[in-house]
């Protein structure tokens, strides 16, 4: 049996424990209320910041796209080609990249970079660039430097997009069988971005009038592409092209010159 002192001590201990629990509970409730309030505020802020970043990022991307297209158009305009040409090359490249199996980000970057393939032409004299008729050997040699020149212009950039553009400028005249220029790369030594832009550019150029030639008929274009499968062009890309021919022709209609 407990003595009355022991009992009183137990009572005291009990009431102290209850006090402590009540105090903890009161604090806990307050902490949770404050925390809920803060979470709400923090999440609101987060969403607001995210919105701001997303607007900025859209702005940056749009600016980048425009600058890139303008640069590409500068290269083209000096040779009397249209701004539509670079747009079509961009879309063809994107389509080829997608079906080749590159990931979406890379496809989108190539779409933006491929219009810069001829940027080196800004350093080619007008007399050669816009000469009607065929180039003589010396003129051809100068004309062919535009790939190297384009690469030289872009190669120092660390931006991923401009790095792709540098590759595309450098390698878009390489041929799958190794007979292209400026490096004479062969097969998959040529970067996929170079192989893709090469086909996109040639397909579009053949179907467009130039100072030195009329636009080719479709049948003649398709025949040449088939003949050059595995020679000038990556056979896989030629296969993709013919499998999805309707999509390529749709792009051509959508971005036509008139």
């Amino acid at each position: 049996m407990h003595s009355s002192e022991e009992f009183a001590a137990m009572q005291l201990h009990f009431s102290e424990t209850i006090d402590k629990l009540e105090k903890d509970l009161r604090r806990q409730t307050k902490i949770i209320q404050r925390s809920d309030h803060r979470q709400q505020k923090e999440y609101d802020e987060l969403q607001q910041k995210y919105k701001e970043i997303s607007v900025l990022s859209d702005e940056i991307e749009a600016t980048q796209r425009e600058v890139v297209f303008t640069m590409g158009a500068i290269g083209e305009s000096r040779s009397k080609e249209t701004g539509q040409h670079v747009k079509r090359v961009a879309e063809y490249s994107y389509l080829l990249a997608t079906h080749y199996g590159l990931d979406e980000t890379e496809c989108e970057m190539l779409r933006q970079a491929s219009p810069m393939h001829d940027i080196g032409k800004i350093a080619i004299p007008d007399a050669i660039l816009n000469k009607p008729g065929r180039f003589d050997a010396a003129e051809r040699k100068i004309m062919d430097t535009h790939a190297q020149l384009g690469f030289d212009l872009l190669q120092h950039s660390q931006r991923p997009l401009l790095k792709i553009a540098a590759t595309v400028a450098y390698e878009h005249h390489e041929k799958y069988d190794g007979t292209g220029y400026p490096q004479g790369l062969k097969g998959e030594e040529i970067h996929i971005h170079g192989r893709i832009t090469s086909l996109a550019d040639v397909f579009d150029a053949l179907g467009s009038p130039r100072v030195y030639k009329a636009a080719w008929e479709d049948d003649r274009i398709f025949q040449l592409l088939r003949e050059e499968r595995g020679k000038q062009f990556d056979p896989k890309l030629i296969d993709i092209f013919f499998t999805h021919l309707d999509k390529f022709l749709m792009i051509r209609d959508q971005f036509c010159d008139t």
Binding site: R27, Q28, I31, I32, R34, S35
Partner: peptide, 10 residues
């Protein structure tokens, strides 16, 4: 500070 830090400070 997080909620458990509030508790800790108490």
């Amino acid at each position: 500070f997080n909620s458990s830090s509030s508790k800790l400070f108490f």
